[in-house]
C-alpha cells in the first residue's frame, strides 16, 4: 500500500460560522479500506462531504491521485474517480432503479499508472444486489428504506470510481445484506478499489477495514491498524463509546 490515492492535510470545515472540522489529516492507499469512526456528531459525514467539495467553507489540502482537488467543484471531483455515497441515501425518487443507475454512469477509467480500473454494469450490480435486479423498473420513491440504501451504493459504483467515500452503508440494511456488503467491499478491494468508510457498526468495520481513524469533535484522536483499535478497549470506550 505504498502509493497514496487520497491524502488530506489539515482539513478544516465550517457550517456557516460554526467550525466543525479541525485540521483533519488522513491518508488512503491504493486498495485500502479505511474506517472513519467516532460517535454521533463527531464529524464523519462532514469529513466525507468536505473531501467531495460539498461544503462551501473549507480549508486545507486534498490530493487525489496526485491532483489537488481542494478547489474543484463536486462534479469535477467525481469525474476524477471519487465516488460518494451519502448517509441519507438521496436517491431520485421519481426515477426508476435503472434510470437512477444511468444517472450515475460515467466512462470507465484507468489508474494513474495506466492500469484499467474495475468497470461496473447493471448486470454486475444486480448480481451483487439481487433485490435491485428484481425491480429494475420500480420508481425509487416506492422502494423500502433498505432497498434504497442498496440503490445508492450501486448508483455510485456505476461511475466506476477509484475510491469510494461510503457513509454508513450498513445502516438500515438487513444482516444478510450487510454480510453481502462485507463481501462486496472485500471484492471491490481485491479489484484494487480504495474505500473510506464512515461506520458505527464495529463488527462491520472489523470485517472489512485495514486501518481506522477515530474522530472526536472534529479532531482526529486516534489512528492505526484496525486490529490495534479492536485490542485497545480503552480508546474504544473513550472515543467510540462501545
Amino acid at each position: 500500500m505504498s502509493t497514496s490515492v487520497l491524502s488530506v492535510d489539515n482539513l478544516n470545515a465550517w457550517y456557516g460560522a460554526a467550525h466543525i472540522l479541525f485540521d483533519v489529516s488522513l491518508n488512503i492507499g491504493r486498495g485500502e479500506v479505511v474506517a472513519l469512526m467516532g460517535r454521533n456528531g463527531a464529524g464523519k459525514s462532514t469529513t466525507l462531504k468536505a473531501i467531495m467539495g460539498l461544503i462551501e467553507r473549507r480549508s486545507g489540502a486534498v490530493t487525489f491521485e496526485g491532483r489537488d482537488i481542494s478547489r474543484l467543484d463536486p462534479f469535477r471531483v467525481a469525474r476524477l474517480g471519487l465516488g460518494y455515497v451519502p448517509e441519507d441515501r438521496r436517491i431520485f425518487t421519481e426515477l426508476t432503479v435503472n434510470e437512477n443507475l444511468d444517472v450515475g454512469r460515467q466512462p470507465s477509467r484507468t489508474w494513474s499508472d495506466g492500469n484499467p480500473a474495475p468497470v461496473w454494469t447493471e448486470e454486475r450490480l444486480f448480481a451483487l444486489f439481487p433485490n435491485l435486479g428484481a425491480m429494475p423498473d420500480r420508481p425509487g420513491g416506492q422502494m423500502s428504506g433498505g432497498e434504497q440504501q442498496m440503490l445508492t451504493v450501486a448508483r455510485t459504483l456505476m461511475g466506476n470510481p477509484l475510491l469510494v467515500l461510503l457513509d454508513e452503508p450498513s445502516e438500515g440494511v438487513a444482516p444478510v445484506i450487510v454480510e453481502q456488503m462485507v463481501n462486496t467491499i472485500v471484492a471491490l478491494k481485491q479489484e484494487g478499489l480504495s474505500i473510506l468508510l464512515s461506520e458505527q457498526n464495529i463488527h462491520f468495520a472489523e470485517a472489512v477495514c485495514d486501518r481506522a481513524y477515530v474522530l472526536e469533535k472534529g479532531h482526529i484522536r486516534w489512528q492505526g491498524e484496525m486490529q490495534a483499535l479492536l485490542a485497545d478497549t480503552e480508546t474504544q470506550r473513550a472515543l467510540l463509546t462501545i
Binding site: S170, P175, V178, V182, H203, A207, M226
Partner: peptide
Amino acid sequence: AVYLGTGKVFERKGAARPSGAQAP
C-alpha cells in the same frame, strides 16, 4: 436464510473474517 445470515456482522464471537480479507 432470509434475514439473519451467519450472524458474523452482529456477533463478536462468530466474527470469522471472510476469506480474502487478510489482516494487514
